[in-house]
Amino acid sequence: MSDPAFLVPAALGTLAVLVRLPSLRRNARDPLLRSVAAYLLTATGVLYFGAPSMIVKVNETTGVPNFAAPLLYSVLMACCGSGIILIINWRGGPPVRIRRATRWCAATYAGLAAAMYVLFALGEAPVERLQDLDTYYANTPYMREMIVLYLVGHSAAAVLMASLGRRWLSAVSRELRAGLGLMIAGCTLALGFDLCKFAAVGARWAGADWDVLSTKAAPPFAAASFCSILLGFGVPLIVQRFEEPWRDWTRYRRLGTLSRLLHGLTPAVAVVRMPLFATVGVRRLHREAGIHDGLLTLNPYFDFDLRARALADALADAPAGGATDEDAAAEADALMVIAAVDALRADPEGRVVASFKELQPEPGGRSDLVRLSRALERLLPTEPRSPAPEGEYA
């Protein structure tokens, strides 16, 4: 494969590492964040050091033919170990068990990485091979063992990560389930890489030439595996990052009809100006506060007898229309609010307010404001626009 096939995914991995750095600095002791950063860093390193131009550069810099091989394989072992550790920390459990499993995994793959250099030093690999080192030296003492060892370590990590992810899959839902599914798919693709390599090396042992499996078929599996696993880790993080703003925006938008109906009912001195660049969460809170202020202004004009009659009518019609009891209550509240707005506008001198003695219950609650707004959408023929002075919570 050419350099772009390695460097483009590596660039994506580098970007992911940079995105996670601020969180890592703020929570340097968080084992999950550390394991995410370690996995992304080592996986990106595998792609960088696997690029043909980087292999040539490493060999030239060190002056040792094929020194890029143990370097690449050791980084791959670090990636495998950090991937398993990430799954262990992501899944959670008793801290003692997590620490024990983490140490065992780190020690195992650190030992495998060290063994790569020992076996390379003991072997003889004078001819530089950029793409077919696995098959070219498949029958060379010590080099053969190094090749088999990295394939076994990589296959074991892929199987273990897929197994842990599959066990966890039934216990999670939504974005985490999608992320785990992508990770499992990535581990399966990684096994495809190993199978191609094993088949090509085994063919060399048998005296055949299946090098094309190692040089042409295996690398695409590696690149696709990395992208799938990277997406698997990224999907839950991205969804969690944007889920709350999306909920705020959805609620803000759905409260629009109710907000516009109550727009301008609150005295101008009570209106709080909204900053131009306020977040959607702040705008949602501001809109809700304005709605509650408007409902408080309407409180003296609420006619609960009207609401009771409207609720009875709505409940009577509910079975035929398929509406729920909550929908019927929201429709009754909406009719009462509309009537209260009309009553307030018909009382410019505030006689009702002057004779008002006791605060009445507010229609609905925080959880029902959206339902109330949607009921207003059905009842009002056009978007309500009050001629009251300019306000800020509409």
Rank of each mutant, 00 (worst) to 15 (best):
T279G: 14
V271L: 06
T188A: 14
A190R: 13
H292T: 01
G181R: 14
R253A: 08
G202Q: 09
L262Q: 02
T266N: 00
A206T: 14
R251T: 07
A268I: 07
P220H: 03
T250G: 01
I238G: 01
L213N: 02
R287L: 10
V280I: 15
V239E: 00
L180A: 10
A223G: 06
G264C: 03
K216P: 00
A222Y: 03
D248N: 09
P219V: 05
L295A: 06
E288D: 10
P236H: 10
P219T: 06
L265E: 00
S225E: 07
E288K: 12
Q240K: 14
M274P: 12
G232H: 07
A223W: 01
L231K: 02
L230T: 11
H292N: 12
R204M: 11
L255N: 03
I184W: 06
W205G: 15
G281M: 07
F221V: 04
F193W: 13
R247Q: 09
I184E: 09
H292P: 03
W249T: 01
W205Y: 14
V212H: 05
R204Y: 08
G207P: 15
L261S: 04
L295F: 05
G192R: 11
L265T: 05
A224D: 09
A222E: 04
R273Q: 12
G281T: 08
F277T: 15
L182H: 10
R283I: 03
V212W: 15
A268K: 14
G186V: 00
G232V: 13
H292D: 04
G192K: 11
A268L: 07
F198R: 08
S259G: 15
H286C: 02
F198N: 01
T266I: 05
D194C: 11
V280T: 10
P275E: 11
V282W: 04
L230H: 12
G264W: 02
I229M: 15
L189N: 06
L231G: 11
V235Y: 04
T188N: 02
D194I: 00
G281N: 06
G256C: 05
E288V: 14
L230W: 13
R204C: 09
S214Y: 07
F233R: 10
A203L: 09
R204A: 14
E288Y: 08
G234L: 08
L258G: 00
L262W: 06
A278F: 07
Y252E: 00
T250Q: 07
G202K: 12
K197I: 03
F221Y: 02
T257F: 02
L295T: 03
L182D: 08
I184Y: 06
T257N: 05
H263L: 00
T188I: 13
A270W: 03
A185E: 10
R251I: 01
H263I: 03
R247V: 00
A222G: 05
R204W: 06
P219N: 06
G294Y: 03
L213Q: 12
L230Y: 10
F221G: 04
I291P: 05
